[in-house]
Amino acid sequence: MQVETLGGGFSDPALQSAAAFRGVMEAMARPGTLQSVRGATPPAPLSAAAGAVLLTLCDTETPLHLTQGFDTPDLRSWIAFHTGAPIVGPSHCQFALGHWDDLMPLSNYQVGTSEYPDRSATLIVEMPDLKQSGATLKGPGIKSQASLSLPCITPFQNNAALFPLGVDFIFTCGETLAALPRTTEVF
């Protein structure tokens, strides 16, 4: 139990978080591309990719929301030991973690202000699978169009309509991740 809490982090944090961030950045800059992110072995039910995202982006300065299913004692103590991120409710979080249905509705989260649209939440969505098919994506970062197996369409369209406000998404499944910024048109 304690071994599981203390283990599972990056063995070489500086280099592995740099590599993981490049995956996240490429994903956010090129919506619809799949990136492989390795190095973290967090306790179940957290995927390796989601674990790496938490290790790379979260610390004591980033309030984190865990939805039911992820709000377990094991995961809380793993996150506390490796990142120190305070666990908060959805309305105050900078990052939220969970399955799509549990994360809904999007109106729970901060979307930024018109003067500071960057003060918005990033949702880390654990997916049963992640493929380059399904919903069509267009927008910055995409040459003509891309496809991604999104869980639904309407909430993303509503989120994009808020631009420049809105939340951003990182989708994780196993060691794979993809991302969807608020600028992407989904249809």
Binding site: S17, P117, D118
Partner: peptide, 28 residues
């Protein structure tokens, strides 16, 4: 690695991701 401490890099990385999500907007 790369001079900056890890917490500083995380802060900059979060700013870069928001910058990419809001193209052209200046993230403090």
């Amino acid at each position: 690695f790369a001079y900056l401490d890890e917490q500083t890099k995380r802060m900059i990385r979060r700013a870069i991701l928001k910058g990419l999500a809001i193209p052209g907007y200046q993230v403090p």
